[in-house]
Simulated assay, not measured.
Amino acid sequence: MEEGFCKREGEPWRVLEFYSGIGGMRYSIMRARVSATMVEAFDINDKANDVYEFNFGHRPYQGNIENLTAAELDKFGAHAWLLSPPCQPYTRQGLQKDSSDARASSFLKILELISHTLHPPLMLFVENVVGFETSDTHKQMMEILVKTGFVTQEYILSPLQFGVPYSRPRYFCLAKRRPSSFQDPHFNNQLLWTPRPLLGHYDSTTMVEHDQSNAKWENLIQSCEPVENFLELKTSSNQSEMESDFFDESSVSALGCEALEKKAEGNESCISFLDQYIVPLSLIERWGSAMGILTSCCIANGILDYYRYVKGTGSLLATVQPERKGKVSSLKEQGLRYFTPREVANLHSFPEDFHFPQHISLRQQYALLGNSLSAAVVAPLLRYLFTEPS
């Protein structure tokens, strides 16, 4: 392994985007205002690549990245690698097979190639679910990074800490290869639960925080924007209860995406835009106790990924508020609906010009958004990573 490609003053950073999905990393680096050229993106999901190409005009490499060689990576001349590998090996709803899961092997293969490249990257950025930091895959990653001369700073952060009313903590690893260093090396090789170093606050007495409770983050609600600012249409306390008679349990899947699509297609003349997102009454009766309900003044939780499960898929929005103070409405009276894909994109802090191609189904939109990330969180991390010490 030799020195990485040197960056000339004024030259944009050259970046490789692994597991590019629908472009969350690219939107984040744009939001961070980092001068960068995305040299290549890689993703095996053809639908994700359709969305990426639709928005950026470039189709990611769709082959198996396990087949990439060190020589092929050298040809890109990249200064930085951004990686958001599959989270299923580490999620509570997955099999938790960790590094023995086939979906973890491509990530480890890419990391192992670092030592075989003639021009290794100067920086790495890794994103995954909370739980990854205690995994065997994480242990192997850190061993590889130490062996190849990288120093790291790790974070577990939530959009709540950046003013977004969305509780979704994620793990992040920032790595720089020596002699490069972070703006404040005091936090090297530590796991932080605070974004303060990213914001230029380097008080070492308060930086390393290990309070992992949701209550700590939810205390930030007062500083967050209201959820209604992220909605396509504002909710109203006087709004009449929406009807959803065109739903029936026999035609809905776990959370009804197929029914939403079919019913919306067949009832365009008689339903409003948001009617297609109303939660079927049959699902409320059956799964109401497992549903996370919020009003326009609360925070959204989870991944807002409605296409597979009832439990753990995020919040539902109550569109009808009690008319009288102290009145308790039943779930059936609250006009529950799903967040629309555009609203989920808003909570991810994606720009207004992000769109899905027409052929991407509602189910696919939710799945792709559920696998994406918060640009509001990742942008400050990338800005911090790409900033050289003064």
Rank of each mutant, 00 (worst) to 15 (best):
E285R: 12
R342C: 06
G326P: 11
W287P: 05
I278K: 12
K311N: 04
Y306L: 09
L331W: 09
T313C: 13
P341Y: 04
P341L: 02
A290D: 15
W287A: 05
V328K: 15
V320M: 02
S329K: 15
G292R: 15
L283F: 08
S289A: 08
T295S: 14
P322I: 00
R342G: 02
Q321N: 06
G292A: 07
G288N: 07
L336R: 01
C297M: 13
S330K: 14
Q334H: 04
I278A: 04
S315K: 08
Q334A: 01
L304M: 11
L316M: 07
R337D: 02
E285D: 14
I303F: 13
G302C: 07
F339H: 00
I299K: 13
Y306F: 07
V279H: 03
E343C: 01
T295D: 14
D305W: 10
G312K: 03
G302S: 11
L316D: 02
R337T: 03
L317M: 08
I278S: 09
D305K: 13
Y338P: 00
G312P: 13
L317I: 09
G326D: 01
K325R: 15
L317K: 05
I293T: 00
P280W: 14
Y306W: 10
T340C: 07
Q321I: 00
L336Q: 06
P280G: 06
G292S: 09
Q321W: 14
T340N: 00
R324L: 06
Y307C: 10
K327F: 04
C297F: 13
S330M: 08
V344G: 04
S329I: 03
S296T: 14
Y306S: 06
Y307G: 13
V279F: 06
L316C: 02
